[in-house]
Nucleic acid binder design. Sequence first.
RNA 1: GCACCCGUAGCUCAGCUGGAUAGAGCGCUGCCCUCCGAAGGCAGAGGCCAGGGGUUCGAAUCCCUUCGGGUGCGCCA
Length: 591
Amino acid sequence: MNIFMDFQRRVAGLLAGIVKAGNLPQTLDLTRFVVEPPRDPSHGDLSTNAAMVYAKEAKAAGSNARTLAIEIAAGLAEQPDVDQAEVAGPGFINIRLKPVVYTEVLRAVLNGDGRFGASVQTDSSPVNVEYVSANPTGPMHVGHARGAVFGDALASLLAFAGRKVTREYYINDAGAQVDVLARSAHLRYLQALGDDIKAIPEGLYPGDYLVPVGEALAREFGASLRGKPQEEWLPVVRARAIDAMMAMIREDLKALNVVHDLFSSERALTGVDGGADQVRAAIDDLRARGIVYLGRLEPPKGAPIEDWEDREQTLFRSTDFGDDVDRPLIKSDGGYTYFATDIAYHKSKIDRGFLALVDVWGADHGGYVKRMQAAVAAVSNGKATLDVRLCQLVRLMRAGEPVKMSKRSGDFVTLREVVDEVGVDAVRFMMLLRKNDAPLDFDLAKVIEQSQDNPVFYVQYAHARGSSVLRQGRTTFPDLDLSPKALANANLALLDDESEGAILRLIAQFPRIVDQAATAREPHRVAFYAHDLATSFHAHWNRGKDLPHLRFVNEINRDLTNARMALASSVTLVLAAALAILGVKAPQEMR
RNA sequence: GCACCCGUAGCUCAGCUGGAUAGAGCGCUGCCCUCCGAAGGCAGAGGCCAGGGGUUCGAAUCCCUUCGGGUGCGCCA
């Protein structure tokens, strides 16, 4: 139940009637106006700009904005659940609803089995969300965490909003990086056999996390890989190392409460281990359509490239699809570029029936967006769209001081360390409380603080407090049924205090927030909403300190207590739904 | 040089896809706390929305431009 969408339809209906009466032109785009909560609550419950939006059309039909506003307001005022509709300011129509509307909202929450606000989107088509996709060459560090949390929350948000979501992880297990991994693991293997490997050479992965991989190789193969040429041991070691890294990454994801439906392998697309070469197939297909050709590129401007070699190469005509230059698909050593395999990968998503693709990347890949969108357009004949959400980097702080991170030395801060220190809920909520394209300072000292300064604590506390209020009510009136379904039958008209009204209005907005956050693909809006709802709940609770008659439990008024239990229950249900989207626990009590 | 992102209170950031008087937290100032949970509560000050043009009934929001930051710029991913 989305009262904003509901009234959007009603106003559209009134406009259609006015069109019929000849006071507006026949061809009227009825989607241009909005129904929204007015910023100033004294203006009522809903507000629409419809009359102003169609001012020009009204004039053309011999009317004007003012007259149109009056007509719409008159139509609205006749509706049974509208208390009052009046024209205000430059032509806004402010609508005051009858209290029964909020009674119905609460009933929808209480009877909704946690689905209040769900499935608000008219579009329920499948959408593919790809996120994390970290190289399987080591444990996840905090830089990965943001994209992981963002992607996971976005996927949950879209699913809650009614889209059919597939969550995907692309394993970059082809290319030079995993060969470096294999050589690094091989060194640890020799070490496990007792060889003196001295320092890890420059360019290899020095982290200790490869030691157990070396030991496992020694257990499995004994000394049989020692002394063999690299061509023989590398594929074997690589496969074991990638498996070990992916197992580690899955553990990291689990610790972060991040889930995926599907892990797709880049290597499998190339067919190097047998199977079809889907990369080649994709390139051939594009070549047949004239989108792939042999040509030369200009050397890039800016930082000079030392070993630039002018050569004729296989290029993708991405400039036909909005990119700045055409992009190479085959490296000088004959292997596929990352872009080539990525084209095949995105094609595979499209072939699996997805026309809506979302990729979550780090901001350092921003320069890659245009060519990938060009590729998706080319491969799908313009049918599929790729939306790339870039996450800015995270600066890890401790009490205001940056924490040094150096991946090369192997002592970078891992995701696991941060989760262990501050908890998964804090990590997730803090990362979602920022727009994804804004940089984020993550202060370890601050997020474990248990005070109102800490938004994670503040929101969770609101849920715990709501639960506590229900426990309190149960103690005072042991015979009351405080299950949501039973509370839906409470006399909700008794909730007539102004700060109760503020909470009711916020609850009514939840479906709208979900809808807009899903459309904008911005889960942070849900985080801010949860914080707002928590604020208004805490504020109302605090009013009970000075005004005892506003307290949730009223020992001499059973019906009033019951109604207020319904309010408390609704707040916890909506908070729980919002927190579930964010992947943050909604605790019954704080400890 | 080019592309993308960003610039809103002292600080960290929202701003509902163009609406009414610009929002929150921290910090600051003042008052309050015997009271369902004080790991507090209430209130106040604080703004040329980086600058300049444009579009329109109406712009922090859309377009152009200048300045200032960030990220990238064959054969890494």
